[in-house]
Write a protein that binds this DNA or RNA. Sequence first.
DNA 1: ATTTTTTTTTAGATTTACCTAAAAATAAAA
DNA 2: TTTTATTTTTAGGTAAATCTAAAAAAAAAT
Lengths: 220, 220
Amino acid sequence: MQSFTEENYLKIIYHLAESSSNVQTNAIAEQMQTKPASVTDMIKKLAEKGYVDYVKYQGVTLTEKGKNAAIDIVRKHRLWEVFLVDKLNFKWDEVHDVAEELEHIKSETLIERLDEFLGFPKSDPHGDPIPDKNGRFAKTHFTKLIDLKVGDGGTITGVSQHSSAFLKLLEKLGLTLGKQIKINDVTDFDGSVEILVADKQINISREVAKHILISSNGKN
Amino acid sequence: MQSFTEENYLKIIYHLAESSSNVQTNAIAEQMQTKPASVTDMIKKLAEKGYVDYVKYQGVTLTEKGKNAAIDIVRKHRLWEVFLVDKLNFKWDEVHDVAEELEHIKSETLIERLDEFLGFPKSDPHGDPIPDKNGRFAKTHFTKLIDLKVGDGGTITGVSQHSSAFLKLLEKLGLTLGKQIKINDVTDFDGSVEILVADKQINISREVAKHILISSNGKN
DNA sequence: ATTTTTTTTTAGATTTACCTAAAAATAAAA
DNA sequence: TTTTATTTTTAGGTAAATCTAAAAAAAAAT
Ligand SMILES: [Mn+2]
Ligand SMILES: [Mn+2]
Ligand SMILES: [Mn+2]
Ligand SMILES: [Mn+2]
């Protein structure tokens, strides 16, 4: 059984590994809001316990054991987020910090019952997939809104930024999960995107467009 | 804000204070499953922070601040227990350990929403009262079953022992909350009690009878 | 191929919550 | 009122997770 802190490290390493197979000390430090020296200490411990493979100065990769442990925490995190939104009427921008604590509650039974209570949801309030009890989940490959061409359309199915500020903005713009959108134009000058959503035309910055994930239903 | 450990100490001191105004170091150590020396350390810290009044060798009493903090944790513990039983179909003997962890999740909003979601319950699965958001709750004064006389009757409204073994036994005997009982006889030899419950006559030991709380509806 | 910059690791401390063993205070028994 | 037993505290130490400052390695720039 892992400590709170170990679990947080594992989860962060898992997420970082999605973009770079070898996860760097500094990257972990930044995510954990701690110092690289502390990360080195913890990395050694995780390697000791068989959660990561570690070569000095070369960063870490999760072992099978480490990956399973990480996925288990991700599963808990996302299930709790669904609970907070579906049952306790939290907004999608309010759930992260609380789920960050709830994910560490240690009870197999609890999480299986919760899963059942929620109706075995497949994705969390941000569109991220929820691993099943065996750690399996569909690898979703969405397109970033920014990568669509003029005329393309699709459904908003995820976000790649979970900050409250960003999520609140999307809420205000009506860019929530499930909404249909269509690219009307891309502004030459600043690369901002004109999109059509719910029959209204709005303009969003490149920065925003980068973090909206679309399940594309092809060109039009 | 208090640490996990501080919260557990406060809660235990609060419960111990129900039977003896001055709570002893050894008593705390026993409940916390730790050593008296460790308790002395923690007591000093809690006194430092203003949660307890402490006189060397004389044990501790909770300050107003300490009492409020303790009641807040009790509230969370009991609300989570209700959630586990009412929503996730846990048995009353399965909830304690999980609630012991859940009670430390820090979010005012979470607990208010949970309270609402559960319909503002007044008591937990063991009959213990749930403080409202201001820390107020009805002081319940039940009679121990063991103190009833032959012919007396009443409703089971609580237990003063939360061990899984005890609760499972009650479940098996059909002695669950809300059940009507009546004292038919007290055995001279061993003090065991003959009671009538759901039209069946059963015999329970003194030890069991001591921990069942009855809201007496008077003599027969 | 050097120099400079960035990344990572070590060395040495600190804090929190523990522990054991021994001393001190209090309470109970003789 | 001594003596004995119990309770509580001190003294000194450990393990986990952190920190700062400085050294070492690797990567990038010149
Ligand atoms: Mn976390
Ligand atoms: Mn999420
Ligand atoms: Mn607890
Ligand atoms: Mn309870």
